[in-house]
Design a protein around this nucleic acid. Structure first.
Lengths: 127, 127
DNA sequence: CTGTATCCGCATTGATACTG
DNA sequence: CAGTATCAATGCGGATACAG
């Protein structure tokens, strides 16, 4: 197995080096605002389709459906349909999704912490 | 200032609740694959324009320029022009950019760790 | 309520050419 | 080498209608 260093020193972006790698494709799948916002909000608690729509705000019916499907396909959320009328569909994070959520939390936290810095930077930037 | 709890218990996504908030706008600015990939690669070391282009791969000249400007405007990277001929332009992360990089690292790490899970999930998903 | 399908405008993106 | 500008095309994303 070699030394411990050889294993642990792999940089986190190692597999993202090639543009055509699977890692890159997956990265592109999740690195967009709708996907990340969905992860963040569903992470708060299990939510229904319309609850999610209202919570996120500004997302169209179509984009929400589309992103939910992609997330489900990648195993980040589970979709549970209750056979009632009217139908009730609930979305929950999987373990993998929850793990990603901690990362997204970090991103949300970063945004809050650097709001002032960013605003200042924008004002000084020569338009 | 009140109790410590009142301050620390704010959820990381607090300011992202409204779709028209500044936090949301900034979140949207950085939550896209090119911006995050640039942060990740520039975070490895200071890089020139063409180095970055080659390192990332699959990004067009125009998109790279465009995203670099947005990142600069938001104070995440600094652009240093060396008055030589031919010109030499180097990009480096600011402190804020470096802070974001640790988050992006987490995202890269997450991608690597869950590659197998995602592949498996995709195979089982009814296309 | 939730989901699928369609249409269509507009923004994003790439290719190309030109400047410093 | 790095950047800007322009043009054309693709596809994202919204609105709408309809089905289960």
């Amino acid at each position: 197995m070699g030394t411990r260093q050889e294993i642990s020193e792999l940089p986190p972006e190692a597999d993202l080096a090639r543009a055509d790698s699977l890692a890159r494709e997956i990265f592109s799948d999740i690195a967009n605002k709708w996907a990340l916002l969905i992860i963040e909000f569903v992470g708060q608690r299990t939510m229904r389709f319309s609850e999610l729509r209202d919570a996120i705000g500004g997302i169209s019916h179509k984009m929400l459906t589309q992103n939910l499907r992609t997330l489900e396909r990648n195993g980040l959320i589970v979709r549970k349909v209750h056979a009632t009328v009217p139908p009730r569909v609930e979305y929950t994070l999987t373990e993998a999704g929850a793990a990603l959520r901690t990362v997204v939390d970090g991103m949300c936290g970063w945004t809050q912490e650097h709001l002032a810095h960013i605003e200042a930077s924008r004002r000084e930037f020569p338009s």
